[in-house]
Amino acid sequence: MNETIGLILLIVGISFDVVGCIGLVRLPDIYNRLQAATKCVTLGTCMILLSVVFYTGLNSIGVKALLCIWFVLITAPTGAHAIARAAHRSGIRLWEGSVMDKYADDKEGTEDTA
């Protein structure tokens, strides 16, 4: 029973990983790529780690997998935020099809005076 749940979680997690990496290749600019890659790969890897818990039970491997889920959930969005901010500050524009960029509008007003 536990192995079946683990197998299902493993399959779903790896399909999310594949979708995230396809998004990393297909989408047009850095910010969209960050969105797809961060969300899908984070949840995919968390599901793989959760399937470790179902396969092995709550022994030293399972507890480490749970801690690893916690670390990945905390660190992945923070890393994505740091990269997005760095990209915007180092002057990379949005894709041509973008609708608006209020961050650039506001920043031009403040950076010259500061």
Binding site: R33, A37, V41, T45, L49, S51, V52, T56, G79, A86
Partner: peptide
Amino acid sequence: APDRTVAIDILGTLVVGFCAIYSI
């Protein structure tokens, strides 16, 4: 350069997935 950084970050998360499968 940020595109490459994102890809390397995602690569790191994928390696964690590899380690999980190996431990199973």
